[in-house]
Structures are given as C-alpha cells and as structure tokens.
Amino acid sequence: MRCLVRAIETGSFSAVARELGIGQPNVSRHIASLEKALGTRLLHRSTRQLVATAEGQRYYAQARQALELIAQAESDARGQQKPQGLLRVACAPTLGTEKIITALPAFLARYPDVEVELRLSDSYIDLIAEGVDIAVRGGVLKDSSLRARRVGTSERICVASAGYLDRHGTPEQPADLLQHQCLIYTLMAGGGGWPFKDGAVHVQGRVRLNSLDGIRKAVMQDLGIAYLPSWTIAEQLRSGELRPLLTAYSAGRSPLNAVYAAERLLPQRAAVFIDFISAVFAATPGLDGRSIVP
C-alpha cells in the first residue's frame, strides 16, 4: 500500500525504491501483488510515466488516510506522544531562507524527533505529487482539494531606489507607472498586473525575473520600480535606501496560509510546525497584520 501511494505521488518506481530502500523490482512486485489481491489495475505503466487508473485514484485517497492512521496508532501504542518523523514543507525561497530557516534551530530544539525537508521554489508545487505535508502560500485559497490555516498576512508595496527616482521622477498615481521601467515578476498570478485599490495596472519593463529575491536586488541596483512584500525590504525602508510609492492606493494586505491536502490526516509534526511559524510571523513586521509604511 505504501509503495502504491508513493508511486502515485512521485510518478516513479525508482524514486519509491530509493525512499523505502527496497529496490525497484520489489516496488513493482509489491504493487503487482496488490493489484492481484484487489482484482483490478491501479496503475497504467509506460516507459515514460506512471498514471493512476480511476480505481487507483479512489484507492489512493483512502489508502493515504489509512497509512496516516496506522502511523498514528503505532505511535500511540508505543506511548510516543511527541511529534516525530519527516516533515516536508514547501515555500518561496525568500520566505524560506530568511524566516523559516533562521527559525529552524528553535523548532528542532523543541521537537528533537522531527526532521524537516524544505522545498524552496517560487513555482507552484503539487502537494500530493511531491509528497509535501505543508506549503506556505500567499493569497486566497481556491483549490478545493486543499485546506488552509492563516499564519500571517503579507502587504505588497511599490518601491524604488533614491537613484532611480532622482533620474526618472516619482509616480504620483498608479497610471504613472506606465511611463516607468517596472521590474516584472514572471510568476505573479493574475497575468502580471499590479493590484491597487481602484484596479490593477499592467506594467511593463525591460527586466523580468522569476525570483522575488532577484527583484529585490534589481530594485536596489536602480533598475526600476518593484512591487514587493513589505517584510522583504523592511531594512531598506528604514534606512531610506528604498522609498515606498503610491501607498495611498494600496490594495491592502493578503493572507499568508499554511495549506495541506484535505484528504490527508494532518500529522502532529505538521500541526505543531504551523503553530510555530504562526508565532514567528506574528513577530515579523510586514507579516504580523500591521503596515510598516506610513
């Protein structure tokens, strides 16, 4: 059952073999034996990919929950009340490196039987396919297969360096951005429009990046106007190295959520991690629900 679940999630017998340490032929034999016992095909196999059949998808959803329940029952039977096991967390690189990794020593000291694997990417991650327990994501949850718990709020603002503004002037209203070089975040939802309280402005610019950290560095190099989470540039705003723009037109804060698969039992290690990062973000200017600009 475990082999089938992870084969569907990873799409690879070899990945399951490495994870479970049993060899790829054994993975194939286990799944074939399961299919024989059930009297139905659970996977379509080809040289390029594994795809679950309709029966396989239904079996997977219940098998995944069963495995979580078995793990919890075994833990309870052993009297192990403390969180334990491997926790897989996905989040954006900037948030992961600057807030989560820096807080990890305290978390690992508090929960010595938990291991943490971070998947740092600005791209959308399929939690089921990647075997991820929690993803930390901004915005309103739209996927009905996921559940979410708010762990903070994030405020995005327009900023530019003093050098850029000295050379090109300061925009007074959102429409003025169309006359400026704007730093484009290529992974931004909504087609790249920058939202303001009266509507989005579809900006343009000569520099495009798929990383918020890259955009932060680019705006500090006088390359254009950026639209960034305020917490990522709190230090530069305090020092005056970057200046906030168009704050009267701000679209407001958006939720930052810990999301997880609705069909899974949330492991205890994941629940305590969500509590932990909620406290971390509550102590972080720009993520704590309060604005860091006037």
Rank of each mutant, 00 (worst) to 15 (best):
L237W: 02
D288C: 01
I225F: 00
R88Q: 11
K142M: 13
A135L: 01
L120T: 02
V201L: 03
R6K: 14
A248D: 14
L209N: 09
W231D: 15
Y164N: 03
A160T: 02
T153L: 10
F273M: 04
E263L: 10
S211F: 07
G23D: 12
I184R: 01
H168F: 08
L245S: 09
G286C: 06
E74L: 08
E9A: 12
A248S: 11
S121V: 07
D222P: 00
A61R: 15
A279D: 13
Q49C: 13
R78G: 08
I157Q: 02
T232I: 07
A52G: 05
P267Q: 05
E155D: 15
L177E: 00
A160S: 01
A251Q: 07
L118C: 00
Q72F: 12
T47Q: 14
A92M: 11
F281M: 08
L237C: 06
A71N: 05
Y59F: 14
K197N: 06
L177P: 00
I101L: 12
G152H: 08
K197A: 10
G169Y: 11
E68L: 14
K82V: 12
V136Y: 09
N210A: 15
W231T: 12
A109W: 13
N26V: 05
S239G: 07
S250M: 04
L212Q: 14
T10Y: 14
R238T: 08
A258V: 04
R149T: 11
